[in-house]
Amino acid sequence: MENVNPKLRAVVICGLFAAITAILAQVEVPLPIVPISGQTLAVGLTATIIGSKFGAVAMICYALLGGIGLPVFAGFKGGAQVLIGPTGGYIFGFILTAYVTGLILEKTTFNLWMAMIANTVGMMITLLFGTIQLKIVLDMTWNQALAAGVYPFIAVGLIKAFLASWLGITVRKRLVQASLIHQVDHRAA
């Protein structure tokens, strides 16, 4: 894959991780307002494996694919109504989550400990965006929005942060060894 044009490689990688997010989004546990889904696990994996810029671009692609109507969001949903609906804030949050999670790792080191910190910070970003939109769209109080959009997701979010960290670091090491992605040199930053 080293002979492949770098721009084409970037497009393929971002598209692949947008597709992985769409697939994991369908792994879902329904709750009254906001379901627990594999989307956030996919966001953490994406950022941990491919970093800030490609991770954010992959999440932009994912949001755009769903926004134009493809059924890539949780529960095979798609369309702009999802993005402007009660759970759309989480999807918008995925973009900043992927960027910040990847950036923390790029500025420190790609190891399990730092990945867990980065993915936990990312989880908080996603929950913040989601809760703000949930509150606004459903005209909830902050307490109601937190009860519906944050509290049910903390424990499972930490589990997903660990899984994204462990799997992400493991996969990233293999991809770097295979020269499919590049190792980040922190001394050059």
Rank of each mutant, 00 (worst) to 15 (best):
L65M: 13
L96T: 13
L83A: 13
A98I: 13
I125M: 04
I95T: 11
A98D: 10
A80I: 15
F92Y: 11
Y90S: 09
G69S: 08
G93H: 10
L128D: 08
A118E: 06
G67S: 09
V121M: 12
M114F: 02
L127F: 13
I95M: 13
G79Y: 02
G122E: 00
F92D: 01
V100R: 07
A80W: 14
L70E: 03
E106A: 02
L103A: 04
L103E: 04
G102S: 03
G93L: 04
I104T: 14
L96F: 11
E106W: 03
F76Y: 14
L128E: 07
Q133W: 06
V82C: 03
N119Y: 07
K135V: 12
I136D: 01
M123P: 11
T108K: 10
L127T: 08
M140F: 06
G79N: 07
L105V: 11
G130V: 07
Q133T: 09
T97Y: 06
G69T: 07
L112Y: 03
Y90W: 10
T141K: 00
T141I: 07
L105Q: 04
L134A: 09
F129Q: 10
I125R: 04
L103V: 01
Y99I: 11
V82D: 03
F94A: 07
M124I: 15
T141Q: 07
L127R: 04
I68D: 01
Q133F: 08
